[in-house]
């Protein structure tokens, strides 16, 4: 029985080591990029997604004030209903898992987009940004701090579907 257990450990260790070796060899370039400091903030990098960038609340505020961008809310409709950026369009990621049609945002592809989710560690805005990138939008900006930061900054809110 003990020999049996030892054999299982050995076999498992062999498979794990093989996986580590294969994973390292196959991903050598990605590991190199990681060691040079990439992917620390996001896996959505300018290499794979050249038309997506991450912005701060100040940049979002400027774009809002000047009307320089269309705001897209990637949260659920329920969350959208409890409060959102005035004029933002609800485009819940959960309803668009298979992709976004170019007309879904209701604006031309050249228009600057600001995408947000609830904030903190939320990932829906990144997911939606990727889909919008695939749909062909040319300037997609992800508000990293999301709705939480927008509220904390005391910026305007709306509860109606406008």
């Amino acid at each position: 029985m003990r020999a049996d257990l030892r054999g299982i450990w050995r076999g498992a260790a062999f498979i794990v080591l093989l996986a580590v070796a294969a994973g390292t060899a196959a991903n050598a370039r990605l590991i190199g990029r990681f060691l040079r400091g990439e992917f620390r903030q996001s896996f959505t990098t300018p290499v794979e997604y050249p038309r997506i960038r991450f912005i701060t609340i100040r940049e979002a505020e400027d774009l809002f004030a000047t009307g320089g961008a269309a705001f897209l809310d990637s949260r659920s409709r329920r969350e959208f209903g409890t409060g959102h950026v005035p004029g933002a369009k609800s485009l819940p990621l959960e309803e668009h898992r298979q992709g976004v049609k170019p007309e879904a945002a209701g604006v031309p592809l050249e228009r600057t987009l600001v995408v947000y989710c609830e904030g903190g560690d939320c990932q829906a805005s990144i997911g939606l940004a990727r889909l919008l990138h695939d749909a062909g939008f040319l300037d997609i900006r992800v508000l990293t701090g999301g709705w939480a930061e927008w509220q904390a900054a005391g910026l305007p809110e709306s509860k109606t579907d406008d």
Partner: peptide, 15 residues
């Protein structure tokens, strides 16, 4: 977190 997610993504699929 971000770093651990990266490591998991490199090796878990091979495992």
């Amino acid at each position: 977190g971000q770093d651990l997610a990266f490591v998991v993504a490199l090796y878990l699929p091979w495992l």
